[in-house]
Nucleic acid binder design. Structure first.
Lengths: 357, 357
DNA sequence: TCTGAATGTGAAACGGGTTTCATTATGGCT
DNA sequence: AGCCATAATGAAACCCGTTTCACATTCAGA
């Protein structure tokens, strides 16, 4: 059976569709009894206006595209849940666009990710979304992908685009990010205050903006404290638990080993925790570990992770609010920065051999 | 600047819009040179067909609504990622509909969840989605919510609806689920084979179908082995890490305590692990723990969790495939069941005091 | 009583595609 | 040479709302 339309309602109410539309949207006064007759019919037939038709003329859909690299990475659900909260409140629905591929064996493949980003960008345009938010992937590259830059600028001419936790230097795209350098400084300063001098860093991808900024934070904190940075204690390229375990195992098996490890995310920190455990090294007594992101899992581990909170939910919320303003044509700052917080839990302690104050 | 339409292309190519549409969709033969002329113009202007307009006539949108209770619960991203994989392959995009509320303090509120489900249902209808998949929430209630049942049956008349890992007894709604009872039997039999006789169960919600089924599996496995079930060792109402910790702590502090705990999900198991650690009880030497779901975090803990894999990704994939068939009007089985697998890792061992074979 | 403003309503155009139907040109085959 | 199937294309209707414009009423104020 065909869904009921404004025409059906109009016919049965003996009015024109214009009038039906008017009561539907409250856009013009309608005589009380006429209105009631129409409303009654709408209820009777459970009339639901076709959003496609409506959007076609109104030129707004209330739909947003959210492009992210991998929903199974717990950082993104956090951001997304903040975004969801505000977006829903503001009357938007959103397409989730995951750019990772998995093969039949459920292994994650990052190789075609960039291609996917482009595909989604044009798909979303066709779907006439009101706005697009992008996080991760090529947005995170320090050396901006010229292809993506060109593409995004093209897209941004037609529909508001917001970049989260990343940037595309040389382009004028709006973005909201956590201050990565500051976050890293927070973490490293904390370790230094605990007496650590031998601090290693693991994880991240050297090509990513975020990683570079955090590394910069690390370096600046070390420099401020007059501490040397040892190249062989900076192990990048990776963001997963296994990688964390691998790098930490490597560090811990060397003759000289660090007393603290700063991890580029919590997953790595969890891996480091496992490596320490396997090596029989106690955390935090013999080794301090600090993570980054403050995903929920940071409190699941034993001991619980000391970490830097990016306030992921807050980023998501801010994204929704900002995008809404952009859609409404209001002015928004080109760049919004959120200050991370250090969350001290159980994986950090005074450096071994130094008495507490 | 106004986006370019088929009319613009048609005018400049000196053809009618019908012809443009034909090359766009390859629905009828078009003379080679005409086609080339049109294609060239499409490239020149970067023509992107308006999906709204297209969907309006075609009466299909390629959009699906995915309703779930809480994206930050790691089980759902797993399912979703499987769903994403297949849905994308089949040419669908989907709206993510999270029904949980969070207040400004980021606390999760479950109270208005049911209301949200209903709101999303009608929103999705208005958006003209081709299909809807629902997981968790009221779908999971053993005593079906008559309101939801009525509503869903109404919706299902218009658009295919698929229920994941749940059911709505008395309704004829398609569903795909993991066999919860079987999964629980797997877990409990494993413990029994290791010599455990004193087995406790924690977590779940007594009103939920899944919980009841798993409990049934637990009971049947115990009965088959001729073991008694102690009421005070079944602690339900909860699915989180803190709850797991709380319940396990309670069990472990009693005079007589179980030698094994079967947890209704991995989050609870992680909590139990923490409780054991705090109580100074070694896992698995003194206490065996088995989880449920096999979320990625199950391998992050120390020791790694023995758990039951629901093959969450597989459920998501199957959902996408099935929904696609339903949309295409093909016949699909009313109920599809996936068999869970036991994943033995490090949290289970022979019961203390009994030598290995 | 007259007038300008506000109320109430319908006809028709519009948004941007798809699809049906009709028409003409073309090619293969007897 | 004649005929039918197929290719190639356009005009117009359609999908389902919104919006503009025009027109008729009603009402308050002078």
């Amino acid at each position: 059976m065909r869904p009921v339309t404004v025409y059906d309602i109009a016919r049965e109410a003996n009015v024109s569709v214009a009038t039906v539309s008017r009561v539907l949207n409250n856009t013009a006064p309608v005589k009380k009894e006429t209105r009631e007759r129409i409303v009654a019919l709408m209820h009777k037939y459970q009339f639901q206006p076709n959003a496609l038709a409506r959007s076609l003329t109104r030129k707004e859909t209330g739909m947003i595209g959210f492009i992210l690299p991998d929903i199974t990475n717990p950082f993104f659900p956090e951001v997304l849940s903040g975004f969801d909260y505000e977006a829903r409140r503001l009357g938007y629905t959103y397409f989730l666009c995951d750019t990772i591929s998995t093969n039949e064996e459920n292994e994650r493949l990052y190789d075609r990710q960039y291609e996917r980003e482009s595909q989604y960008l044009s798909l979303l345009m066709e779907k006439q979304v009101d706005g697009i938010v992008m996080i991760g992937g090529r947005v995170d590259l320090a050396k901006p992908d010229p292809e993506l830059a060109r593409e995004l600028e093209e897209v941004a001419k037609r529909v508001p685009v917001l970049l989260l936790n990343g940037s595309l230097p040389k382009t004028k795209l709006n973005r909201v990010s956590a201050d990565q350098k500051f976050g890293a400084e927070l973490a490293v300063q904390h370790l230094i205050e605990l007496g650590h001098r031998d601090i290693a860093v693991i994880g991240g991808y050297s090509k990513m903006t975020n990683t570079q900024q955090r590394l910069a934070g690390f370096r600046s904190a070390m420099k401020d404290a007059g501490l040397p940075v040892r190249k062989e204690w900076i192990l990048t390229e990776g963001f997963s638990v296994p990688k964390g375990q691998e790098y930490a195992a490597q560090l811990l098996s060397a003759k000289r080993r660090p007393t603290a490890i700063f991890c580029m995310n919590d997953l790595l920190a969890i891996g480091a925790l496992k490596a320490a455990h396997r090596a029989g090294i106690r955390v935090p007594e013999e080794l301090s570990i600090v993570g980054y992101d403050d995903i929920p899992q940071a409190t699941y581990s034993i001991p619980e992770l000391t970490t830097v909170s990016l306030m992921s939910q807050e980023i998501g919320r801010q994204a929704a609010r900002t995008l809404d303003k952009m859609i409404a044509g209001k002015k928004v700052p080109l760049f919004q920065s959120l200050m991370p917080e250090l969350i001290v839990r159980e994986t950090t302690a005074r450096v071994p051999g130094i008495a507490a104050d």
